[in-house]
C-alpha cells in the first residue's frame, strides 16, 4: 500500500533497528528449516516474505532485495526500476516523472538513507537485476549464500 510504503521510508531508522535485531534469528531459523526440508520451503517462505514486504514496502518480489541499501524504499516501485536513482525527470515538487500522483521512489530513498546508520550504502554502486530470481525469496537466498 502506497501510504504504508511512504511511512516505511520515513521511518527507515526504526525499520533498520528492527532489521538488525530480527535478522540473525530469521536467517538462523531459515537455515535450520533449509537443513530439514530443503527446497520444499522455497514457496512457503517466498509467500511469507511477499506478504510481509508487500505490506511494508510494496515489494515486487524481484528476488534481488536491496532495501537496506536504498533507504528502505523499494527501487522496483520506480516505473523505470532504476537501481541507482533518481533519474533526471523528477518533478519540482519531488513527484515521479511518469506518475505524478506518486512521490519519486528515489527522492524518498535518499531521505530514508539519511536517517539510517548504514545509510551511506546508498552511495555504493548497485549492479543489475538477475531476472531469473523474480518471485523467489531473497531471505532464503541470503540464508543459503552466507552459510
Amino acid at each position: 500500500m502506497y501510504a504504508v510504503r511512504l511511512w516505511s521510508t520515513r521511518h527507515a531508522r526504526v525499520l533498520e533497528r528492527v532489521y538488525e535485531l530480527v535478522n540473525p534469528a530469521v536467517l538462523g531459523g531459515l537455515r535450520a528449516l533449509d537443513k530439514m526440508f530443503g527446497a520444499k520451503i522455497d514457496r512457503p517462505v517466498a509467500a511469507v516474505e511477499a506478504a510481509a514486504k508487500g505490506f511494508l514496502f510494496d515489494c515486487k518480489m524481484c528476488g534481488n532485495c536491496v532495501l537496506s541499501r536504498t533507504g528502505m524504499s523499494c527501487p522496483m516501485n520506480c516505473p523505470k526500476q532504476i537501481r541507482n536513482g533518481p533519474c533526471g525527470g523528477v518533478r519540482d515538487d519531488g513527484s515521479c516523472e511518469v506518475d505524478a500522483s506518486m512521490r519519486c521512489v528515489w527522492v524518498e530513498a535518499w531521505a530514508g538513507a539519511a536517517q539510517m546508520r548504514g545509510g551511506a550504502k546508498i552511495s555504493e554502486l548497485e549492479g543489475w537485476v538477475d531476472h531469473r530470481l523474480a518471485g523467489s525469496s531473497s531471505w532464503l537466498r541470503i540464508a543459503r549464500d552466507d552459510q
Partner: peptide, 22 residues
C-alpha cells in the same frame, strides 16, 4: 532515458534492463 509515456508510442513496452550507472 525518458519513460515511454512521454513519447509518441506510450503503449510500447519499456525495457529499463539497466540504468545509467549500471
Amino acid at each position: 532515458g525518458d519513460d515511454v509515456s512521454a513519447g509518441d508510442h506510450p503503449e510500447a513496452k519499456p525495457v529499463f534492463d539497466l540504468d545509467c550507472i549500471s
